[in-house]
Design a protein around this nucleic acid. Structure first.
Lengths: 237, 237
DNA sequence: AGTCGTCGGCACGCTAGCGTACATAGCATG
DNA sequence: CATGCTATGTACGCTAGCGTGCCGACGACT
């Protein structure tokens, strides 16, 4: 268990807060464990809590027609689930699915909105985060449209690796297919190609990143662009 | 020229403001004419002004690789250009292109941020607008990925018609191709199909919507979904 | 009236990815 | 060790859309 003092630093949005804000935040939150596959929110559901992942991460998914799904954003230690509440809206826009098990800081939705009134630094930082997410959503739209499965897969693996903090990822082709909105067989082909290039290795539900730099080259620009934007808007001081 | 009293009602985000807020707003803004094709902002450029279209409308476009472009959002009388400033960020995330000539209310970026401090109703309304845009960006991502050109074209024409307020649209296939991120020839085929179904008629740069309801049926759900969300989050009282 | 640039129709072969189906192989479980 | 489930490999024909290039038609402008 992480010590109380370190916890706020574990989520990037919460680092470097002034003492007062940190204390107020810590008083209002608790730590929860998120288990893989858990649906935290269905679209249009009302937020009961806001989550700040520590070593867990969450997929945000657009659902069209039950069988047509597409991940459009990810929230791990660099982000949060519930940014709509920063805008004063308590309705979830997307399906939120726990994609990496682990812990997260959790705050009651009402308490969170209250808290924001007295924590201007945090508030400002979260607004910047929303901006980043918006731009990433726009980029994703173009990426999903223009880029090939192999590039998109590479990008997705990198994003996941960043959030999982390990080069071993527990993922099936089936799952990846849902995330990227493509056929399972399409993922298999792309994965074979990436493996042949020596960038990843995988077997029965486990993918290992072997060559991160190579994978970055194999991915579309969108990955680096996203990273650059985040670093620019939400620098870790 | 629209009368001063009516102007605030001309943009949907500005309707039903309390007297005080309306006056403060009117004092800070002026009316400008936007001409077709004008680039109001390049991505990463700094906002100098915020625009609230009256009968003009603006395309927000993701640019990847110069020749790969995709419209991801539209701002007409129902929206605004510069919502990032509501989040305190003065950087434009996307390319903003005037797609329909007409007039718009314009405010200096700094004055706008000042104004928001004393106009809570407007501020809240704009935050709701940002939420709507975010959800629309996510929907667009899925739409561009899953839906066929013909459906997307139908949707796009409907969205444009709503903002143009006329059933005659001045659009070339070339332009539409850029908006949807597809080939010009792809648009031609889709347009032929829609015309054959009696939903539209067109000739040399002009498209006329003949059967709006039919066009809604021909479009993907995304159109109605977007409309429904807007109506729910930003009702015109 | 003639000229010329723009707009739209169309056709070519090509690629990515689809839907589906079936076969193999790893792993857990009894 | 046998069984059975699940993950992966692969193959089939098919479709949407691509890149390109060419042609005709419209219409603005001299």
């Amino acid at each position: 268990m992480t010590s109380i003092l370190n916890v706020p630093a574990a989520n990037q949005l919460l680092v470097e807060l002034p003492e007062v804000e940190r204390n107020a935040f810590m008083a209002a939150c608790d730590t929860v464990e998120l288990s893989f596959g858990k649906v935290l929110l269905q679209p249009t559901e009302t937020f009961t809590h806001v989550y700040f992942p520590i070593d867990s991460f969450i997929s945000l998914i657009v659902v069209i027609d039950t069988d047509k799904r597409l991940e459009v954003a990810m929230a791990g230690r660099e982000g949060m689930l519930g940014s709509s509440l920063v805008l004063g809206i308590d309705e979830a826009p997307l399906l939120a699915l726990v994609q990496g098990a682990g812990s997260a800081l959790r705050i009651d939705a009402g308490a969170f909105q209250q808290l924001l009134l007295s924590t201007p630094v945090l508030h400002q930082r979260l607004k910047r985060y929303i901006y980043v997410v918006m731009k990433q959503l726009a980029t994703s739209a173009a990426c999903n449209h223009f880029h090939r499965i192999e590039e998109r897969l590479a990008r997705w693996l990198l994003m996941t690796q960043d959030r999982a903090g390990t080069d071993q990822l527990n993922l099936t082709h089936e799952f990846l297919a849902m995330m990227l909105g493509v056929r399972r067989a399409g993922i298999t082909l792309a994965a074979i190609a990436l493996q042949a290039r020596g960038l990843i290795r995988y077997q029965r539900g486990t993918i290992t990143v072997l060559d991160r730099l190579g994978l970055i080259e194999a991915s579309c620009e969108c990955y680096s662009d996203d990273c650059a934007l985040y670093a620019k808007m939400l620098p870790v001081l």
